[in-house]
Design a protein around this nucleic acid. Structure first.
Lengths: 154, 154
DNA sequence: ATTACTGCAAATACTTTGCAATTGT
DNA sequence: ACAATTGCAAAGTATTTGCAGTAAT
């Protein structure tokens, strides 16, 4: 499953005529296997365990390449940095407004499509050509909610 | 309507014991009246027409204050800067992946709440305390879709 | 052999901080 | 008068660019 995800991405890169460096493969492994939606800096820290000489720059270039191939999704958080999600299937994110933790929220694709077609599409005031959705839920994770009474009040 | 929005925000600021400087009032006017989801820099350019001496810093401070009072919403775009929305009622955004243009997407609150309660809430894998939603649609605006064939291909 | 990729350093973009002077209540 | 706010300059992050050397096909 995870491995086939890696293979998927690798084949796409080959098909597009790009090359496969060890750094690139490792970056793909890290984002596709991670469940924690890492930032570029976090991917960088992780890859340094196996390739101590890689540059942050290389991490940025590879992540943005993967993003333009639609093989990772970018998540913008409130703390202004971009996080990366190796799961590009339809799903949402619940984002903790206190600690920034992001968890996946399962969304059933047919349900969402139905909601979109019935309730939203007809209301677009301009003719947008939608090809991607993002659904985010903001609030507090359980830890921040229980541990820090100061932030729990609205 | 627009004016009452300004008054709403002004009363909240008074109630919280903050002061009302001309710069602040003008910034509130600009975001609450704008339909174009301006960035901090765009608000800055606008306010300079009436108050040429304001600093960008003041704009940032006021916008983040309004955001923490939940009187404006922050929108993170792909071009990494934050945009501000003076409409804090439930609605989504359609964002053009080519030019960055953002338009509002009407979402009927009861419909969305129903969708959330029935299809999503039960699937949260952790006990998140959700108090806010964001729904984004990514694609191309009609102009970019028709004008620039290079970007229309997936 | 050719083209793409890496790593370094420098540059840019956006936002935040520190602080003295000023303004709102 | 007092506390909050402003504007300036400097600092801080996150990300991008330019380029010479290196590695992949």
């Amino acid at each position: 499953m995870t491995d086939s995800r890696l293979n998927q991405i690798v084949s796409k890169i080959k098909k597009m005529g790009y090359s496969l460096t060890p750094q690139r493969v490792e970056i793909i492994k890290i984002v596709s296997e991670s469940k924690s939606h890492p930032s570029a800096a976090e991917v960088y820290n992780k890859i340094k365990e196996s390739y101590p000489m890689v540059s942050l720059n290389t991490v940025y270039k590879n992540l943005s390449m993967l993003s333009s191939l639609h093989e990772v999704k970018e998540i913008k958080t409130m703390q202004n940095s971009v996080h990366y999600d190796g799961d590009v299937s339809l799903h949402g994110h619940a984002i903790c407004e206190n600690c920034g933790k992001i968890i996946d929220v399962q969304i059933n694709e047919p349900d969402f499509k139905k909601f979109f077609e019935n309730k939203i599409k007809g209301r677009l005031t301009e003719n947008y050509h939608i090809n991607n959705y993002g659904v985010e839920f903001y609030g507090l994770c359980d830890y921040c909610y229980t541990a820090d009474p100061a932030v729990s009040e609205t």
